[in-house]
Amino acid sequence: MSEHTPLLSVRGLTKSFGDLHVLRGIDLDVPTGSVTVLCGPSGSGKTTALRCLNTLEVPEAGTVRIGDVAVDFSGRVDKRTATALRAQSGMVFQSHHLFPHMSVLQNVMEGPVVVQRRPREEVRADALELLDRVGLASKAEQFPFQLSGGQQQRVGIARALAIRPRIVLFDEPTSALDPELVGEVLQVMKDLAGDGWTMVVVTHEMRFAQQVADEVVFMDGGVVVERGAPAQVLGAPREERTQRFLRRLLDPI
């Protein structure tokens, strides 16, 4: 694979729930170390597209390749391949989904120890470093319920990074947060982008997109309407649908 080959490649992704066609052929290329922001109105398919990348949703057709694991969903997908694809990415959820019965540290260590069977002491050191990276080293022994929403989400990020994924997927990571807690989560994500993590982020935070994204992909009705550099897509959108969406976002009333 040449260094110009994108880390993540998606072609012709299609998915419907019953009669509802959520994705109608999505293509996506994400180069190593870049940040891609997926945005669009509610129901545009952006979250479904993201969830297809790690088979939380199984697409009906299309291919997804991350690194050297490629899956063609048009045929029968065996479990081994799906698992291999899933192992390539880490996922941060809108409502964090931390394991409530485990301490913060256990949450972060769970994947590496139980699934990847790496030595506990090594994992512990890594996990503490990750918690430090998200500013929560002092909370390692707490239970999730003892943390604020922003802190919980930062633990969610540390847990996703702990499995050493090649790419990190964020599904509206700040949408469920109180407004004053959004900044601390976005700051962590910005720091990760600076560290060179490859990220795909579904978000409505346009300032984050402007500052951090390498590419913004605007989706509507299950297709990609417009894509490009944030300055272009958000600053001078060509498509009417993009313009309308941005107007409503900036001026909701």
Binding site: L56, T83, R86, M91, F99, V114, A162, I163
Partner: peptide, 9 residues
């Protein structure tokens, strides 16, 4: 889902 994304069966 969270368990699945960290690789659990």
């Amino acid at each position: 889902e969270a368990a699945a994304t960290i690789g659990m069966s």
